[in-house]
Design a protein around this nucleic acid. Structure first.
Length: 474
RNA sequence: GCCCCCAUCGUCUAGAGGCCUAGGACACAUCCCUUUCACGGAUGCGACACGGGUUCGAAUCCCGUUGGGGGUACCA
């Protein structure tokens, strides 16, 4: 039987890192086994689901390159299927109508809490007489549908990551609601209906779903369907070791995209969170991971999200990237920063800048700060740079450099080196004594990318002389 | 509270009873390269939560303790 897996996000927020990682594992598992990866949008919670989140999830998965083979399916368009399932369970006597009010349930839980007991439904409406039921209906009560869960049942399954997991029926909280009073079917039920209907063979999801699994296994049995394999992956945790939440800074894929992380780096990092490669190699593209990915190497403990490691991986991919491929990725960030750029005319010049700053970049957005002095008329002079520019020797160097540039309209990087070396010799100064003032005058900072290349590039755009002039009169 | 899961350097992890003096990566420190900052290279720092077993031998198996996490809805 061919492998069929799915990712089933609910559109109640932007594509979350945890969802993305689950998607990645499912995608890799499907590709590894030559199976299918489906996308299903779980939008049964109509109050919290929003179309913009659907859009965000779809575009996020696409950005990551986790293309789905079927879908997206929307649960709100499949309500007839769930209705039929509910009728079937009702007819078989495996589910029933339950009439308690939210207040009554709250009272029950309150009483249980007071006695130190676990909160659970006491199955009080499981065996209502027709008279009792008629009375509730006459009161105008709208029933929920509950699925019967026997306390003495024992549920066990072989989890793909955790091995055998055993659950007692009595710990499942009593007969479970599968449809609201409004008729809206609920998560645990629709998941099972859909997974059966879509022929899902392996349910790979986060560990936070582990408690849902025994309930769902019971539903598979009740519906007379084969139970798929389950694999519960460890959770991604925050710096404190708790489940990632909105309060933990950037938790959506979108935010990382906007900060300038590359999808290949992001995938690579998520892959390493909970899965370990068979050897010491850590850099894997999606395609490279397909043949080596398997569940034997999935870890059981949760993993903290570590920005340092993500940054390192991202910088590796960035540095490896051909400059001509990097340029279109960087351009939007430069443009957003307000730099005026002639994409066509300046192409060579821009590529040279990018070549220069590429080794210093960790995220795409870094290109904004690193290249800023190329795009402004005058750089933003830092305090430390101003101090250097005040030193007496500085004037001599800058004056000399100015004279040379005035007679040299165009300067290649190699020429710049010879010129500056000559300048130092002529003045009897060490390299540092020449470079430092020059750097400060040209870039406004005491350190940065290669100065001679910067000089050549600035001079090409007639930005070097005005800066020397400005610095001389500071 | 109750149920479930988990436990190796600060972080991600390797480790299937002797290959472990516990390996790798990030981070950090030092040095080299270098006009500077990065990049790159080298070196260093640094962990088997604790207590009992089992065994000739335990990071690895068992039990307990502690710690952490998840769940406990007419959310997903």
């Amino acid at each position: 039987m061919s492998v069929r897996v799915r990712i089933a996000p609910s559109p109640t927020g932007n594509l979350h890192i945890g969802t993305a990682r689950t998607a990645l594992f499912n995608w890799l598992f499907a590709r590894h086994h030559g199976g299918q990866f489906l996308l299903r949008i779980e939008d049964t919670d109509i109050e919290r689901s929003k179309p913009e989140y659907v859009e965000n999830i779809l575009s996020g998965l696409q950005w990551l390159g986790l293309q789905w083979d079927e879908g997206p399916f929307f649960q709100t368009q499949r309500l007839h299927l769930y209705q039929a399932g509910i009728q079937k369970l009702l007819a078989k006597g495996l589910a029933y109508r339950s009439y308690e009010t939210p207040e009554e349930l709250e009272q029950l839980r309150e009483a249980q809490r007071a006695q130190g007991l676990p909160p659970r439904y006491d199955n009080r409406h499981r065996h209502l007489t027709p008279e009792e039921e008629a009375k509730f209906i006459a009161e105008g009560r709208q029933p929920v549908i509950r699925f019967k869960i026997d306390d003495d049942r024992e549920i066990r399954w072989q989890d793909m990551v955790r091995g055998e997991v055993v659950w007692q029926g009595k710990d499942l909280g009593g007969d479970m609601v599968i449809a609201r009073a409004s008729g809206q079917p609920l998560y645990n039920f629709v998941v099972v209906m859909d997974d059966i209907d879509m022929g899902i063979t392996h349910v790979i999801r986060g560990e936070d779903h582990i408690g849902n699994t025994p309930k769902q296994i019971l539903l598979y049995e009740a519906l007379g369907a084969p139970v798929p394999k389950f694999g519960h992956t460890p959770l991604i945790l925050n710096q404190q070791g708790a489940k990632l939440s909105k309060r933990d800074g950037a938790t959506s894929v979108d935010e990382y995209r906007m900060m300038g992380y590359l999808p290949e780096a992001f995938n690579n990092y998520m892959l390493l969170l909970g899965w370990s490669p068979p050897d010491t190699r850590e850099l894997y593209t999606l395609e490279e991971a397909i043949p080596v990915f398997d569940f034997d190497r999935i870890n059981k403990a949760g993993a903290r999200f570590d920005l340092d490691k993500l940054n390192w991986i991202n910088s590796q991919y960035l540095h490896q990237k051909e400059t001509k491929e990097l340029l279109p990725l960087v351009l939007p960030f430069w443009q957003a920063a307000g730099y005026s750029i002639d994409q066509e005319g300046d192409r060579e010049w821009l590529m040279a800048i990018l070549d220069l700053i590429k080794p210093s970049m960790t995220v795409l957005k870094d290109a904004v700060g690193l290249a800023s002095y190329f795009f402004t008329d005058l750089p933003d002079y830092k305090e430390a740079a101003k101090e250097i520019l005040q030193q007496p020797q500085t004037k001599t160097v800058l004056q000399k450099a100015k004279e040379i540039l005035e007679t040299t309209p165009r300067l290649a990087a190699e020429q710049a080196k010879a010129t500056i070396d000559g300048l130092g010799k002529e003045l009897g100064l060490k390299k540092g004594a020449v470079m430092k003032p020059l750097r400060c005058a040209l870039t406004g900072d005491v350190h940065g990318p290669d100065l001679l290349i910067s000089l050549a590039l600035l001079h090409q755009k007639h930005k070097a002389l005005p800066r020397l002039h400005y610095a001389l009169h500071l």
